[in-house]
Nucleic acid binder design. Structure first.
Lengths: 151, 151
DNA sequence: CTCATTACGTTAACACGTTAATTACATTAT
DNA sequence: ATAATGTAATTAACGTGTTAACGTAATGAG
C-alpha cells in the first residue's frame, strides 16, 4: 500500500487558484472561439491586434507588457500579422534597437466588423454573470496581480 | 490619417478579463517558479502529478477535466511522468479503451518534500492578498466558470 | 576613448495549447 | 449477427509558453 500521508498538508487541487484560473480562461474562450475561428485569428493574435490598435504606435516591450505575453511570442505573432498586412513596423530614429508597431487600416476595418459581435458576447455572459460580479472579479484580479514578486 | 472609429465600441484591453487572467496566472507563477525549477517540473506536470496523487486511480478523461487541460497535453505529460517513474498505467479489464493512472511512491515522496515550501508560498501571498479576498476570488472564478457555453 | 555593462529585440529548443484526424474498442439499432 | 454510431485515448500539425543564448546598439565607469 502506498504512503499517501504527503497529501495531508495540501489543498484539493480542484479548489486552487491555478485550476480555477485555467477554467475561467476556458469558459471565456468558449464564448469567443466561434468568432475567432470565423475571423481566422488565434486568441493571442487578437490580443496583440487589439492592443496595437489602441496606440498610435507601440514598441515591442510595452506591447509585451500590455498583452501579458512574453516577448518571443509577441515577436512571432507580429511576423504573422505583418505578413497579413495587419501591422507595419519601423525602427526608431534615435535608438535603433527599438522598433515601433502600427496598426494598418485593414486592422481597423476588422475591429469595426467585430464590435457588434463583441457586444453580443459580453451581453450573453452578463445574463449569467452580472456586471456587479464581473466588476468585483476584475478588481480582485487586478489586486492579486499587483502582489507579483521580483522577476 | 487612419480611421480609428472602430475602437469606440471596444473596452481598453488592459481592463478586460483575458488580460487580467493572464496577469494573475503570471503573478501566481512568479511565486512558484523558483520551486518548480528546483524540482525540475513544469507547472502543468505539477498539476497532473497533484491530481493523480489525489486519486487511488484516475482515467485520462477525468484527469483532463480536473487539471483543466486538454487530453493531448495530458497524454504527452503522462508519457514524461511515466518515463521518470512518477506514475504507472494499466488498461481497464472491462473496457479496454480506458486506461488508469496511479501515482507511485516516488510521487508521494516528492509531494511530501514540497509541503513545507507550499505553505511558505501561500503564506507569502497571504501577506499581500488576505485570505478573505482570496476566498472571494476563488468563489467568483468558480461562479464564472459555471457559465460556460456548449462545447 | 575603451571596455564592461545594460537594454531591445530575435532566434533556438523544447514543452504545452489547440484542432482535426486516427486507432481501437463499445454500444446501439436494425 | 452486423452495420452504424459513439467513446477513450493517441497522434499529427501548427501556434504559443518558456527559458537561455545571441546580435546589436546604447550607456557608464575607468
Amino acid at each position: 500500500m502506498d504512503d499517501r500521508t504527503a497529501l495531508d498538508g495540501l489543498k484539493p487541487m480542484n479548489k486552487t487558484l491555478p485550476i480555477l484560473l485555467a477554467r475561467a480562461r476556458e469558459t471565456l474562450l468558449s464564448y469567443w472561439r466561434p468568432k475567432l475561428t470565423e475571423m481566422g485569428f488565434t486568441e493571442q493574435q487578437w490580443r496583440v491586434l487589439r492592443v496595437v490598435a489602441e496606440h498610435k504606435r507601440i514598441d515591442i516591450s510595452t506591447l509585451s507588457e500590455e498583452t501579458a505575453m512574453h516577448m518571443p511570442s509577441v515577436t512571432r505573432i507580429l511576423q504573422t500579422l505583418e505578413q497579413n498586412g495587419l501591422v507595419e513596423r519601423t525602427r526608431d530614429e534615435e535608438d535603433s534597437r527599438r522598433s515601433w508597431v502600427r496598426a494598418t487600416q485593414k486592422t481597423f476595418d476588422v475591429l469595426a466588423s467585430c464590435v457588434e459581435t463583441s457586444n453580443e458576447i459580453y451581453a450573453g455572459i452578463e445574463k449569467k454573470f452580472d456586471n456587479k460580479k464581473m466588476a468585483q472579479l476584475l478588481t480582485l484580479l487586478r489586486e492579486f496581480s499587483d502582489v507579483r514578486t521580483g522577476s
